[in-house]
Computed example of a mutant assay.
Amino acid sequence: MPSRIRLEDRECPLSTTVEHVGEWWTLLILHDAFDGYTRFDQLQQSLSISTSMLTTRLKTLVADGLLERRPYQTNPARHEYVLTERGRSLRPVIVALAAWGNQHLAPEDRSMILVDAATGEEAEPVVVDARTGRRLDDSDAYVFTAGPAASVLMRARYDELDRQRPPRDGARIAQPSAD
């Protein structure tokens, strides 16, 4: 199957992430895994997904290191699919996607909400900078720029974007060294 990533985006973390988790069924399988579903039949019943599609998606999730395939029965052989540390690290992404979806619905139209397990109170997930605690949804306060491993093409992209941005406090965005 040909890649959906454009040649110039191969190093972009967003593009490569979407390559791993951007499929409709992948996100739903991961969501079910976060809810504790680990067995093939549980996932198939929960998602109403075909056997062949679920098999394909699970193989990909295992190959990508997001799920681990573990035997739980020997006769007949049966396996469960358990989140790896890498897979568990996607939970904030799934939570943020669900929160974004709920943000655009009236409260009475929400079929699933995130709540505090201890109090039952609805949570309002936001993505913040761990260093400052500031929300990251302000596109004027936070922008992408080329990182240390950026190729010439990626640096050119962000150099151009930087030239188009108004200076902040009289300075341009600092570009990481190519060293």
Rank of each mutant, 00 (worst) to 15 (best):
T132D: 06
T145P: 01
L161W: 11
S151T: 15
M154H: 03
S139A: 09
A171S: 11
A149P: 00
E160T: 14
D140R: 13
A149V: 04
M154N: 05
P167G: 00
R163T: 11
M154C: 09
D159I: 09
R131W: 04
A171K: 14
R155C: 03
R131P: 00
R134F: 04
D169G: 10
R131F: 04
A150E: 03
P148L: 08
A149W: 10
D169N: 13
D159Q: 15
Q164P: 00
P148S: 14
R134M: 11
E160P: 00
P166W: 10
R168K: 11
V143Q: 14
P167E: 11
V143P: 05
A141F: 11
A146I: 01
L161Y: 14
G170M: 01
G133R: 12
P167I: 06
A146Y: 02
R134S: 07
T145V: 12
A150N: 05
A141C: 03
L136V: 15
D169Q: 06
V152F: 08
A156H: 06
R134Y: 08
A156L: 08
P166H: 12
Y142H: 02
D137K: 07
S151I: 05
R134T: 06
P167Q: 09
Y142K: 03
S151G: 09
L136N: 03
R157V: 00
L161V: 09
R155Q: 06
R165S: 06
V152L: 08
D159V: 12
G133C: 05
A150W: 06
R165H: 06
M154Q: 13
R168N: 04
A141N: 09
D169F: 10
A156V: 00
A156T: 11
T145C: 13
R131Y: 02
P148W: 10
R168E: 05
T132L: 10
P166Q: 15
P148M: 14
A149G: 07
R157M: 01
P167W: 03
T132V: 07
P166A: 13
A146H: 08
T145E: 11
D162P: 00
V143I: 14
V152C: 05
S151P: 03
A156Y: 05
T132K: 11
R135F: 00
E160H: 13
A171R: 15
T145R: 14
R165W: 07
R157K: 11
D162Y: 03
F144Y: 12
S139M: 12
R163S: 15
P166E: 15
Y142Q: 08
Y142E: 01
R131I: 05
V152I: 03
S139E: 14
A141T: 12
S139Q: 06
A146C: 07
L161E: 13
A146Q: 05
R168M: 04
S139K: 13
A149Y: 06
D159P: 02
R165F: 04
F144D: 02
D138H: 10
Q164S: 12
L136M: 14
L161R: 15
Y158M: 06
P167F: 01
T132I: 09
D159H: 11
G170Q: 01
R157N: 00
A150T: 01
R157D: 00
V143A: 13
